[in-house]
Write a protein that binds this DNA or RNA. Structure first.
Length: 787
RNA sequence: GCCGAGGUGGCGAAAUUGGUAGACGCGCUGGUCUUAGGAACCAGUGGGGUAACCCGUGGAGGUUCAAGUCCUCUCCUCGGCACCA
């Protein structure tokens, strides 16, 4: 039994002392920027999911470093945000204090796991020297009019007492605490991410290093939808309702127009409606329903006394308010064609409106999925035209034009909470909203006695008069500071840049260094960030690119997502269920190396896995065997099949780390070690150690030093497998008769068909099998097939 | 409903991309050593059969000398989005 505690403690200290993992400031030669998504330093320490993510990233970085790449592999802390504040409130300590404590624990635990970070580049989003630049970016957004003030109702979490972005919701509930979200009109700062919707979409096409899945999730989130805007005049109000549709060909089947209860159209129409009160009551009620458990039932109320004109037939069309029409999509208004849409059909049934079929089809109405070759009917001059071909014509006849709409909404960027970056703006009664000059950054988050959320829609900062009251940087008159803070996602939207140049006080990042290190060559983290952090970070990167601050508009060229580690037997780990696996405890009992190896061995990196406490014994057993081998070394040369296996292993391990299928790399290492059990040439053993080093950094370093090698194994070169050697020697060719494998023959590599046939003839059982048969197919080194 | 990823031994999983299915590990069975073993080592381990053989990658068809892999249909599981017009 090797003493993992002793070994791991000693080498942790040694590496720190020797700066083994320091990244020098280089700007030439091959580089590799390996970044794992930094954690929010919670009070419960690293969890097993962190361990899986960071070990996977670390192994990659270690291999690249050994392969001679200038490798940047940093770590930091996403320390602002609601949970930090909640934790501090619970423990009755200032979030600054608890954050510092938690960071210290996380850092210690990272070291325990043998993660090869360059700690000189450690960052924390809560560090004023860091958030100075977060604020700086905000000012650039403000200058570009990408940040704007809004008083529109926003998603309000009554429990967290703050406004939230759409990205922070899950099915109408707060993603964090599960509370039902309300709509509340509070003063907000918004970022115009919708201006970048198309670029965020187009950029995905260039990201070959992202999984199709991750890209698809983002496409879904952005939700681009191409259609037409069609005008429906309402003569009595002197107003025109623009409706959005992707199916203008159904326009002749229109039997009503419906607008969202929250849409802007309402005001213009309401003044002439005869039932104002009923409409107002409906709107109020639907607002409540909409945000809570969404009613699947379609409801609506007619605007009495006014009608819209059908843009082609000029017939009168009733106008309704209906809550199945969304204000945020398209124009907030639709035309209803009950014959060819489920919801319009349901609504028409409810309101007893006519249903006119306009596309041919034999099914019962509504016919939603029409055949590709379906033709129009009841559509005036378009009767008999293929519906696809009628779209543009009908839209044009109706005076419509093309329009694109998105599911993505502007980013609600203000939080009415304490623990975040202050938004660096000043409100002046004379000059309006004025940015804090760059040279006055950072706007420090003030010390405060009570940082509990006020719940009034104002941040706790608003209560600090001495901080709020300041002078206007433009006119010198009295001004008040903006009291909202930024969301947690702000700091993480650009942190990949700061690691490159973490101590720079004069610029966000040095241009030359940025051009060298960016983009991130491998970004590793959880899929749950696909619709928030990854969208936000790509958005900011594009803005910074437009400003010339960075030289590339996509920050992460390769994205590897890590699968969730479930509890033993499946399901979510939770404190309540008592099935939480603590990586540090595992490291205590079997060692970090065994933990690392097991985490990688269990399944491909991106796959969900369930923890299995029994399997880890196999990893430890393997390491034990490797350790024991050090006392049985021989001076024999490495040759024959052993040399072959050695090169196969080097190829397999390299490939496995490169592809994220670490599990096959681990098994290749085990195969190699098994092959070495009878005879262990020192040379082969050293290759095994170097191939194993990224997975088990402590044990391999210990043995390396035991063997009297100078320097760290982690600065040695990574073994390169030779394809020719890996393939040399005999190969087994399968012998198939009538499609069934009947045996194998061992033949020299690239043996000809004649040679293989000759060998089979010498083989008693097989020669009988194939006698009288003819060779149908011969694939060298693989198979010979008789019929 | 739309989109994405998957279904392979008792379990986690491999499979050079159409060429010996189940590598590697866990577990299990037998053995060696030991005062002892929930340690170590050796051997075995998809199912059926004494055997030759037969069956086997969610299911049903198909293409092929050859299919886990390709095609058609179908059933489940997980994940994302969803009154999106």
């Amino acid at each position: 039994m090797y003493d993992h505690k002793d070994i791991e403690r000693r080498w942790s200290l040694q590496w720190e002392k020797d700066n083994t993992y320091r990244t020098e400031d280089q700007t030439d030669g091959s580089k590799c920027y390996v970044l794992a998504m930094f954690p929010y330093p919670s009070g419960s320490g690293l969890h097993i999911g962190h361990a899986r993510t960071y070990v996977g990233a670390d192994i990659y970085a270690r291999m690249k470093r050994m392969q001679g790449f200038h490798t940047l592999h940093p770590m930091g802390w996403d320390a602002f945000g609601l949970p930090a504040e909640g934790y501090a409130l619970k423990n009755k300590k200032h979030p600054k204090e608890t954050t510092e404590e938690n960071i210290a624990v996380f850092k210690e635990q990272c070291m325990r796991l043998g993660l090869s970070y360059d700690w000189d580049r450690e960052i924390a989003t809560t560090d004023p020297a860091y958030y100075k630049w977060t604020q700086w970016i905000f000012l650039r957004l403000f200058e570009k009019r990408l940040a704007y003030e809004s008083h529109e109702p926003v998603n309000w979490c009554p429990s967290c007492k703050t406004g939230l972005a759409n990205e922070d919701l899950e099915g109408g509930r707060c993603e964090r605490c599960g509370s039902a979200i309300e709509k509340k009109p509070i003063r907000q700062w918004m970022l115009k991410i919708t201006d970048y919707a198309d670029r965020l979409l187009d950029g995905l096409e260039t990201l070959d290093g992202w999984s199709e899945y991750a890209k698809e999730v983002q496409r879904n989130w952005i939700g681009r939808s191409e259609g037409y805007r069609i005008p429906f005049a309402v003569p009595s109000c002197d107003y025109t309702i623009s409706v959005f549709t992707t199916r203008p060909e159904t326009l002749f089947g229109c039997s009503f127009v419906a607008i969202s209860p929250e849409s802007d159209h309402l005001q213009a129409l309401l003044k002439d409606a005869e039932n104002k009160d009923a409409v107002a009551a409906y709107c109020k009620q639907s607002e409540v329903l909409k945000v809570h458990e969404r009613e699947k039932e379609i409801t609506g109320v007619r605007l009495e006394g006014i009608v819209a004109k059908h843009p082609i037939t000029n017939s009168e069309v009733p106008i309704f308010i209906a809550d199945y029409v969304l204000a945020g999509h398209g124009t907030g208004a639709i035309f209803g064609c009950p014959a060819h849409d489920d919801r319009d059909f349901a609504f028409a049934s409810l309101q007893k409106l006519p249903v006119v079929q306009v596309i041919e089809g034999d099914d019962d109405l509504p016919i939603v999925d029409v055949a590709d070759d379906a033709r129009l009917m009841h559509s005036g001059s378009y009767d008999g035209v293929l519906f696809e071909e009628a779209k543009d014509g009908i839209a044009a006849d109706a005076g419509g034009e093309r329009m694109v709409t998105y599911r993505l909404q502007d980013w609600v960027f203000a939080r009415q909470r304490y623990w975040g970056e202050p938004i660096p703006l000043i409100h002046c009664s004379v000059c309006g909203v004025v940015p804090v000059p760059d040279e006055d950054l950072p706007v420090l988050l003030p010390e405060v006695a009570s940082y509990e959320p006020s719940g009034t829609g104002e941040s706790p900062l608003a209560a600090i008069d001495s901080w709020v009251n300041t002078t206007c940087p433009v006119c010198g008159g009295p001004g008040k500071r903006e009291t909202n803070t930024m969301p947690q996602w702000a700091g993480s939207s650009w942190y990949h840049l700061r690691y490159i140049d973490p101590h720079n006080d004069h610029a966000l990042v040095d241009k030359e260094k940025e051009r060298y290190w960016m983009p991130v060559d491998r970004y590793i983290g959880g899929m749950e960030h696909a619709t928030r952090h990854l969208i936000y970070a790509r958005f900011w990167q594009k803005v910074l690119y437009d400003l010339g601050v960075v030289g590339t508009d996509e920050p992460y060229s390769v994205l590897r997502t890590v699968g969730i580690v479930q509890a033993e037997g499946g399901g979510k780990m939770s404190k309540r269920a008592g099935n939480v696996v603590d990586p540090v405890k595992i490291a205590d009992t079997v060692g970090s190396d065994a933990l690392r190896l097991y985490l990688m061995q269990m399944a491909p990196f991106n796959q969900t896995v369930a923890w299995d406490g029994n399997q880890i014994a196999g990893a430890r057993r393997f390491l034990e065997r490797v350790y024991a081998m050090k006392d049985r070394l021989s001076d024999d040369p490495v040759q024959g099949s052993l040399l072959k296996v050695q090169h196969q292993t080097a190829i397999a391990v390299t490939e496995s780390i490169e592809s994220g299928k670490y599990n096959t790399g681990v098994s290749a290492l085990m195969v190699f070690s098994n092959a070495l059990q009878k005879q262990i040439p020192q040379e082969a053993y050293c290759v095994l150690l170097r191939l194993l080093a990224p997975f088990a950094p402590f044990l391999t370093e210990e043995v390396w030093s035991f063997l009297g090698k100078k320097g760290s194994i982690h600065t040695e070169s990574f073994p390169v497998g030779d394809q020719d050697i890996a393939k040399q020697g005999e190969v087994e060719v399968a012998v198939q008769v009538q499609g069934k494998v009947r045996g194998v023959v061992s033949v020299p590599r690239d043996a000809s068909q004649e040679a293989v046939v000759a060998l089979i003839a010498k083989h008693d059982a097989l020669s009988e099998r194939v006698s009288g048969r003819t060779v149908r197919v011969f694939v060298p080194n693989k198979i010979i097939s008789y019929v």
